[in-house]
Amino acid sequence: MLQDVYTVTGMTCGHCVGSVSSEIGGIDGVKEVEVDLATGRVTVTSEQRLDYAAVSAAVDEAGYELTAREEK
């Protein structure tokens, strides 16, 4: 399993967290999504490295903006 950490802006509440988690969780290969509302950090556990554009599109669909992916 791999983990990637992304930064998402615009989230302000639990509903935001649920929306982002749901959209990213729908990407093929994603096993777990953890969102830290206070920092905007989203940790995604997946079977393979995820395409940044796919994660960005999922976050956009939820109504927020993906601003970065931390390199590991």
Rank of each mutant, 00 (worst) to 15 (best):
L2R: 12
L2E: 14
L2A: 13
L2S: 13
Q3D: 14
V5P: 11
Y6Q: 04
Y6M: 09
Y6D: 01
V8W: 07
T9K: 15
T9E: 15
T9C: 05
G10H: 00
G10V: 01
M11N: 08
G14F: 11
H15L: 14
C16P: 05
V17Y: 00
V17H: 08
S19G: 11
S21P: 06
S21I: 11
S21F: 07
S22Q: 14
S22I: 11
E23M: 00
E23S: 14
I24G: 03
G26Q: 06
I27G: 02
I27H: 09
G29L: 03
G29I: 01
V30E: 05
V30H: 06
K31W: 03
E32F: 05
V33Q: 08
V33K: 04
V33N: 03
V33G: 05
E34Y: 09
V35H: 01
D36M: 06
D36C: 04
T39W: 06
T39V: 01
G40V: 02
G40Y: 10
V42Q: 01
V42W: 10
V42D: 03
T43H: 01
V44E: 02
V44C: 02
S46R: 02
Q48D: 13
R49N: 04
L50I: 08
L50H: 00
A53F: 09
A53E: 10
V55K: 05
V55H: 06
A57L: 04
A58M: 02
A58G: 12
V59D: 04
V59G: 04
E61N: 07
A62W: 04
A62T: 12
G63K: 10
Y64Q: 07
E65G: 10
L66N: 05
L66S: 09
A68T: 06
A68S: 11
A68N: 14
A68V: 03
A68C: 13
A68M: 12
E71D: 15
E71V: 14
K72A: 15
K72E: 13
